[in-house]
Design a protein around this nucleic acid. Sequence first.
RNA 1: GGUGGGGUGGCCGAGAGGCGAGGCAACGGCCUGCAAAGCCGUGUACGCGGGUUCGAAUCCCGUCCCCACCUCCA
Length: 504
Amino acid sequence: MAQRFYDTRTATVRDFVPLTEGEVSLYYCGATVQGMPHVGHVRSAIVFDILVRWLEYTGLQVTSVRNVTDIDDKILEKSAASYGEDFEEDENYPADEPWFALAYRFEHEFARAYAALGVRRPTYEPRATGHIPEMVALIQRLIDAGHAYPATDGSGDVYFEVNSWPAYGELTRQRVEDLQDAPDADPRGKRDPRDFALWKGAKGTDPATAAWESPWGSGRPGWHLECSAMSTKYLGSHFDIHGGGLDLRFPHHENELAQSAAAGDGFANFWLHNGMVTYAGEKMSKSVGNTISPEQMLEQARPKAVRYFLGQAHYRSQLDYRPTSLQEAEAAIERIEAFLDRGADVVADLQLKREEAAAVAGTLTGEEAPDAVYVAQFSSVPTAFRAAMEDDLNVPQALAVLHDAVRAGNSALAAGDEDAVEQYYSDVQSMVEVLGLDDVPEPESAQDPAAHHALDILIRAQLDARAAARAAKDWTTADGIRDTLAAAGVVVEDSADGARWSLQ
RNA sequence: GGUGGGGUGGCCGAGAGGCGAGGCAACGGCCUGCAAAGCCGUGUACGCGGGUUCGAAUCCCGUCCCCACCUCCA
């Protein structure tokens, strides 16, 4: 089966064939760094992180680019507001902060949020402010081609002329006539209200640091333009996939496509859009107050569970957050981890036995023991998992395969079938890797090896005492020890070969 | 008004003409000294009304409702 993706532009699921064999070029929209990341940003990043990991798993070489839009109206507005006399600063917005400081600060907050959830960095993360010459060149090409014009009112703006581009609306299949005019649109020097800004002439109130020289006067780029300029700079005029949130389809991606296509670029071959995150069925919004930030999620659950939750739905579906969602994800994750923990012990034993057997055989024959032969194969994923991922990245289906393997693995453990355990262990491990779940950093408290070692010795002493009590059928003492450990957040599990402990 | 996507069991969430994906929760059983974990089993789920079909959650017609975008948005 071939890889297939739903392409927004054609509104169909199509076979995905890379433009260059063996390689994939991916551009997906990151953030306009004007505030703290919210879960929607993070979901999108996780979706495309899984996509990249999967494509790489299938042997493709992926070049991924995610923009940082670090200059725009909102950033300037927020910075300007911070200098106001009646400005009330809060933890996210200090007083008197230059726009570039604000943007850079939030850029780092995004990087932190991504890293906390195991989102790998893209190949490159270009900033809009670093690509002004590319944007100016693109505008010039559009003017030369007759698709853009400097504003007639001397404002220094340059607009894309929607009516000069018959294909306008092709991405979202909308007719220009049907579009509602923006109620508060400032017509300024536009020929048509639907024309959008490529370049915004500097206003007297703009800080000098937020203006660049151009053939049309000092100013700054409009939204949309940076993505066209940066994607084609790093990926070529025609690249494989352009991604982003569903809400970016219009106008952002529609305009990107128009300006790039009108300039003569082939642009994106596939458009992938991820669904929104809702809170109990409603879109999260600050005014309703039904928001939850990545930070808050991380306070409630382990990063791995948060990643599992944000990645578990199909990427095109709306993902609904509920107060119980993270607990459920935590339970699912723990089930997988519990199997991997127990399975690892069995697999390690099995390896050891083989090495011993090989050593004995080597002594007998005088040959050296071949060790490479016994290295577990972590390289292949079950066919059903592959089929699910190839079918428009059907992660929910893929997770079903993962959970099936966990159950089968647990049964094999119970049956003492070590070879089967090894196989399921390998399957689960490789699926977990593709989904990036093994790559999520644990919270700092859980990753101090010295502390963990000390704790292990102390708990083992307790468990030994309990084992002795159990051997003597002194249940009161045995249960007392277990209760004490439980009160300290240590869960004890008995098994045929002794007790295991883990932190709650 | 235009465009796109939906309504699936207690909850989340795939699927898309015929064997009830999967997770979470619940209940019963096995295992266990008791637990925990694990395993097995249970629930007659597809908004509503018609139709097509041997057979429909899946196709067709009608109808109700929801969400997103059209203004900044992942």
